[in-house]
């Protein structure tokens, strides 16, 4: 297979950047999207050009490192799939493929397709945890947790923190990411103790990072590789409302 790639190239954070065209030749249908880029990069290096910088690590869809907007869709548009698990057989021979980085003020581009998602870490640092120290915890079976609640918490906890939700949202909102973490912990009895503080701290940090607001378009849910539900955003809003009411009375 052969493709024409239009790729965002940007030397560093201060560079303005531009789309550049490359030819991807002799691509095999069984290659993953990132392997296709590997091949293109090998060709660039052979020509003495700098390869296209892009983030990836586990390449099995769980680490959340890869972060490409492919033909205008975060992770390329295959449901529940990260870019690293997307394979070239889903593209048409001869197609032009546009590749861009996540675009959001809170995710500045570091180089080419690599962005800085430290904002997500700072949101978790603000309250995305249960305040227990190592040791001194009760026996694991001391607090029963209903299977339904526990499964729901796991649904939210499945988030891989890739940032596709932000990339796809027309407002670059991080609500799905934050809601997933808040819900994971607020749903569990262990996490309920500090649930008000958690939701307010995390939302405050999210706002400070310069993400946009949720306008309930549902794009985030549609591109999420772990198919995290929009319902968690409603749940977080409720938790925030309760915290606001409690703080105001």
């Amino acid at each position: 297979m052969n493709f024409t790639l239009r790729v965002w190239r940007q030397k560093d954070a201060n560079d303005t950047g531009a789309m550049v065209e490359y030819a991807a030749k002799d691509i095999i249908a069984d290659m993953s999207f990132l392997e296709m880029l590997d091949v293109v990069n090998e060709g660039l290096i052979a020509k003495g050009e700098e390869p296209i910088a892009f983030d990836s690590d586990c390449r099995e869809g769980i680490c959340g490192t890869c972060s490409l907007v492919i033909n205008g869709i975060a992770h390329g548009g295959q449901r529940g799939t990260t870019a690293c698990q997307l394979h070239m057989r889903h593209f048409e021979d001869g197609q032009t493929i546009t590749i861009e980085p996540w675009r959001a003020r809170a995710f500045p581009v570091l180089k080419d397709l690599v962005t800085d998602r430290g904002a997500f870490d700072r949101i978790v640092q603000a309250g995305g945890f249960i305040s227990v120290n190592t040791g001194g915890t009760p026996d694991a079976n001391a607090i029963p947790v209903g299977k339904v609640e526990s499964d729901k918490a796991m649904d939210a906890a499945a988030c891989i923190g890739c940032g596709a939700c932000v990339a796809a949202c027309k407002n670059a909102s991080a609500m799905l990411f934050v809601a997933a973490k808040v819900s994971h912990l607020n749903l569990l009895p262990q996490g309920k103790v500090e649930k008000d503080k958690r939701v307010t701290s995390m939302v405050t940090q999210m706002d400070a990072e310069g993400f946009g607001n949720c306008t309930v378009t549902g794009s985030c849910e549609a591109v999420c590789p772990k198919e995290i539900s929009l319902n968690f955003i409603a749940r977080m809003n409720r938790d925030y409302g309760v915290a606001l009411l409690k703080a105001s009375t």
Binding site: V69, E100, G210, S219
Partner: peptide, 25 residues
């Protein structure tokens, strides 16, 4: 705030899931 959250637009952006109504509020 929403405008400010994405200073650099995408060169190509497909609409996924977002209804016409939701995008034009």
């Amino acid at each position: 705030e929403n405008r400010a959250a994405r200073p650099q637009p995408y060169a190509q952006q497909e609409i996924v899931a977002a209804s016409y109504a939701s995008r034009t509020m």
